[in-house]
Amino acid sequence: MLTMTDVKKVFRTDLIETHALRDFNLQVDEGEFVAVTGPSGSGKTTFLNIAGLLETFEGGTYQLDGQNVSHLNDRQRSQLRNEKIGFIFQSFNLIPDLNLFDNVDVPLRYRGFKRNERKKRIEESLELVGLANRMKHLPSQLSGGQQQRVAIARALAGNPRFLLADEPTGNLDTKMALSVLELLKQINQQGTTIVMVTHDQHLASQAKRNIYVRDGQVSEMSGIAEPAHIEMHQAAIG
């Protein structure tokens, strides 16, 4: 589903070079639910951006659903994002001026679906997240948990091969976070591959597989992260 081999990403300014990812290797198979954890500045977000084709990379190869994406142009990358990847962001990233229906509609229009097809998909995906009766509401009229559900509906409406979630519960209280997590599990059980970046160890422990990123490289674990790392991270974020 997703294979990164020796992927490198360097951020340069006039004075310094920062190696955000160095020889980053990762394989995610179809149907997996992978949590990516690591301290701030470890390279998780860079990994997420590259995995989601939001950023380019300098070295190595990245195959998404069997396709080498290294040499795609901006337009092809946009199209691939639209067709294969569903995004869930920490701060939901709903468009405040559009109601729920129009928000979920955004990626479907870029896909070029016909009106009836879009309507059916929007209704189905809002139904799935339990918000079908609030289609005409604006995001500001919903709670944070509900907004994230809309974002999930938007991510799912195009039937992507995999979901990329960036701290999906980072802005939610525990109760809402749990309900969003349950929703993600349910979606995964229905066959969608999920890669979730988080610094929440409890959340990560709910995933089938955990990846720990440190200094731009992967150190894989199957269970919960080592307590020392958690403490370090918590100390870092205060």
């Binding site: 337009r75 946009s78 639209n82 995004f87």
Partner: peptide, 16 residues
């Protein structure tokens, strides 16, 4: 800016 970035992430081309 954020909205535009989000639209790009969701599949908008530069032309869009």
């Amino acid at each position: 800016k954020k909205q535009i970035g989000t639209r790009r992430a969701l599949g908008a081309s530069q032309g869009s």
